[in-house]
Design a protein around this nucleic acid. Structure first.
Lengths: 213, 213, 213, 213
DNA sequence: AATGAATGAGTTTTCATTCAT
DNA sequence: AATGAATGAAAACTCATTCAT
């Protein structure tokens, strides 16, 4: 193996480790934020839990706010990626995009809630105004995809004709609400109840307004 | 008028002013938190907006956390009061408690969201553990009321027989979701759309599972 | 004494103490900077030496840089004030403004040098760009005053006709240099030598280019 | 060519490259310090501008302070070297050492000012106390040379009899001042003015106290 | 009783220095 | 030998809380 190959290999190794560490920081931040609330996490804490030094975090993110911003963007990006994938396969199952979207957001309710709080917090931060604009662009794109899927269903006669925004909003209302409930501070659904409840919601979500064909 | 009457009068005046000031502090805190996020409010800011000195706040609350706790408790108390009132009148309209609950929480979505965030933040705070226990007791009481109303509806044949918790959760899911949507950072519903959407949700919320009698 | 008089009195007392403390901060900063170099002073240190808490400093100045900026501006303002005063009295002694300027800057060479370093450091700081512009305006005003005094001397035949800027620069060169020398790290002038040297410089400064009338 | 010759050659090559790199580091540091002030340069920045890695700098200097110390010493050494050279040739032009000294320090005013600031900063640093002692020894040597030149001039009747220290200080005063003025933050001398001003200073510097022979 | 100046514990952030590769 | 990612000590800065007036 010639020398430059070794170097390229090493370079890639390094890059991979760098990215892995970046992810470790984000994961630490998410885990801690989910566990004890955004208000109660510090850079020191994130570093300690990621098993790295405080300074290292600033090699990856220019500020604490940037970390939070990144988490929010990653989440929305992940959704957009999945959604666009399933949008290409509406022939086999025209309900797929909507179900996928519901599932993704219900998969980890605590995480979904965290994103909501991040959005609320970062909304007022001038420092990340540009990134927030980007975030809202992604959000709009996701909404557009869902609307497109709904219009297709209406066109195919699978849903009653109504403003797609009403369907979209109703779906989201259910989902968001289900997310919130899963967290409902106090009385937790046990695993079985939870399962049955979520499938109940999913059923409502996908039958609501369905034509009785 | 004897002297002690004057004193009693003065005392009441004082007490009234004291309570008014306390409410002013809370209102300031709520207004600011709704406007710029919990993360971005300080005691100084609250004091300034309430038109009083920073030190005065500590005559009313022993800590910043206590203020937040108080806001959260007030909200839940307000709901429980209304709910218990309407529970006494299920003869005239057995759906009334449920509709009331939905309406109260949808009345000011931003406020409702604020409460969610307060709950999330205070949940981890040992300092207010006792008050949080009290809060959860209120919450449980509210859930019990709703469940009671649902069971009544089922018993009257107005709802299909199903675990009342499923109904309760579905209602809440819709409400919570509707709240979140009303805030959806980015694309605002204009006033008309908003009206029609909220009534759409209310309709779903109160017809969902209704027997076709 | 009526009540509002007491209040006004108290208000003034408070204000006075506030300003005194502000000056104490600045004095601490100057003393420390003169003693151990700008590079080696911290907010904590300044606070400790001023006998106050760290946080208090931030009630008076929004950042460390602002303190430095303030010191620089104060110095230039003090010079401008004196200079403008003596500009009004050129009838009795037309050399007065120049001598005054020389004396002021030679009065505390270490302080003068500190100002030089502050200027060099703040020059590159965007944060205080506006204040620096103000500083340069003061500086220009001082230069103008000196030039005016020189032109008067030339007009009165007390100085040979030459570009006033040459005189001005030469004066300043001497002064600046004398300042620097007084500090010359290593071998200090003892008090007597110093006296005689400074009067030597002053003499050169005020005779340089004098007509032999 | 025998093998050890090759090795010796290689060794010299290496050594040369090593020294070149060292100079590159110093040059980078100087360039940056002149451009944006001592307070605003970091090791990372120096490394980047020298086109090498941060770690490499520590193969050459044990600390950042050492780099600064080195710059200061290099400057003073350069002056001493030139000065001693011209001291050997006072027969042809007895004013030569003084003129040389003035010229060297006026050649790059910004650099000269940098040295002043370095001196002020390092003066308080225990870490380089020994090097500073060495620096002051060089400085004393330079002063001695100048004094010697002055005494010669007086002995030759080319300068009025006066304490040589007075002449020395006056020269330095002029030079230092001229340096400072050349930098005078604000209003820059344009190239022509600057030329004429510096020669004006040089003239004063070398005629001041000259006997009218 | 009300105030807000003063405080310092606790955060974020910087950067010289180390060290594994 | 050269590198730059990782580090953490040290600095700047914030803000809930106290307390003299």
């Amino acid at each position: 193996m010639p020398k430059y190959d070794i170097n390229i290999h090493k370079f890639h190794e390094k890059k991979k480790r760098f990215l892995a560490r970046e992810q470790a920081i984000i994961n630490s931040a998410i885990r801690l934020a989910k566990k004890q609330g955004i208000a109660n996490i510090t850079i020191s804490l994130i570093a300690k839990h990621a098993g790295i030094g405080k300074g290292t975090i600033y090699k990856h993110f220019i500020s604490k706010t940037e970390i939070l911003m990144r988490i929010l963007l990653d989440y929305e990006n992940k959704i957009i990626a999945s959604l666009q994938l399933s949008m290409g396969a509406t022939d086999s199952d025209p309900f797929a995009p909507i179900q996928l979207y519901l599932k993704m957001r219900l998969a980890d309710p605590r995480l979904d809630r965290l994103m909501q709080q991040l959005e609320d917090q970062l909304k007022y931060d001038i420092q990340v105004a540009k990134s927030m604009a980007q975030f809202y662009a992604l959000r709009r794109s996701n909404i557009a995809s869902i609307n497109e899927a709904i219009l297709l269903l209406i066109k195919k006669g699978l849903l009653q004709d109504a403003p797609s925004s009403h369907y979209y909003f109703s779906y989201l209302a259910l989902v968001q609400g289900a997310v919130d409930l899963s967290l409902a501070g106090n009385f937790k659904l046990d695993t079985d109840d939870r399962e049955s409840f979520l499938s109940f919601i999913l059923e409502i979500g996908t039958t609501m307004g369905k034509t009785s064909s």
